[in-house]
Nucleic acid binder design. Structure first.
Length: 152
DNA sequence: GCCAACGTTGGC
DNA sequence: GCCAACGTTGGC
């Protein structure tokens, strides 16, 4: 069972929203590398939820993959901010899995703490200039982040 | 296929 | 709001 980390801006869609919704289509990812990771997600994979542009930014909880990635409906909707005129239903460009809320962490693991953790060296999120909104996380890194969320 | 210009992300 | 670091676009 793989583990992933997905970023979201809480002003746009927060873990509160996911908790309320239960599950949601993870729409709006418009980067090819991130898309390719979304398509690799398997049902049951863990998903660490990360709030970016937040106070503080950090990992706020856990979700899981509820459904394999299918075409992202927002790419077909001219009224959507994620509309993509070059996509068609015959040849969709963007895909999204369904993500299920699992739990909120007792405490947010802020970016600063992630950077300070020697156990997290090599985590893609922490690499200089990394902007990917969907990244794979190794089992060891995943465990380390979860243990940080529970306190020492 | 190169690369300058432009757009986006996201920490600070 | 600034801006560094990337990604994408489009002229040539």
């Amino acid at each position: 069972m793989a583990c992933w980390l997905v970023k979201t801006e809480p002003d746009a869609y927060s873990i509160d929203d996911l908790e309320r919704d239960g599950t949601t289509d993870w729409t709006g990812v418009r980067n090819y590398q991130a898309r390719n990771f979304l398509r690799q997600m398997q049902v049951g994979d863990k998903v660490l939820l990360y709030h970016s542009n937040a106070e503080p930014s950090g990992v706020v909880g856990m979700g899981s993959v509820a459904q394999l990635a299918g075409p992202d409906r927002t790419q077909f909707d001219p009224r959507s901010e994620f509309f993509d005129a070059k996509a068609s239903r015959e040849a969709p460009r963007w895909f999204c899995p369904k993500i299920r809320f699992v739990r909120r962490f007792r405490r947010t693991v802020p970016l600063e703490a992630l950077r300070a953790a020697s156990a997290l060296q090599g985590l893609l999120l922490l690499q200089r200039g990394s902007r990917l909104s969907v990244i794979p996380v190794s089992d060891a890194h995943c465990k380390a982040i979860v243990s940080m969320s529970a306190g020492k």
